[in-house]
Nucleic acid binder design. Sequence first.
DNA 1: AGCCATGCACCG
DNA 2: CGGTGCATGGCT
Length: 143
Amino acid sequence: MNRLTVTKALTANDVGETGSHQAGIAVPKQQELLEFFPALDAAVKNPDAWIFCQDPDGRVWKLRFIYYNNKLHDPDGTRNEYRLTHLTLFLKQNKAQVGDIVRFTTTEEPNRYLIALEHASEAKKQERVDPDVIRLRGWRRVH
DNA sequence: AGCCATGCACCG
DNA sequence: CGGTGCATGGCT
């Protein structure tokens, strides 16, 4: 089983710097990401799945992967996007800042991932060393 | 304060 | 006009 990694540059909203009390980070609707994360049934309104992410310190974070799709179900719906919530504590403990990178890597087991936070400076270094990353508007898929 | 669910703004 | 960042009302 090939191991996949995707990364996301954090926005101000993601780290709670904007004063918004909204939770979670947006997950762009990219085919690679939908395959990377658990499949959610679009026929269901707002389906979700729980994933378990182990950080470099061995702590496991239970994150909620949710598909807000009321646009497909309600006449006045406006949402059609994926989100990842329950990240606040993780970001706080890692002192996440705008521009920092969250990295997810698959494991052998479904719904289990590795999670790591890279600060912006390291991320730039990584970019030079990794010329064959696939750019996905904020998110990248590595390999 | 943080999560849920949704609306709005902006930009390509 | 679709997609994503920013924001908000309600609830816990």
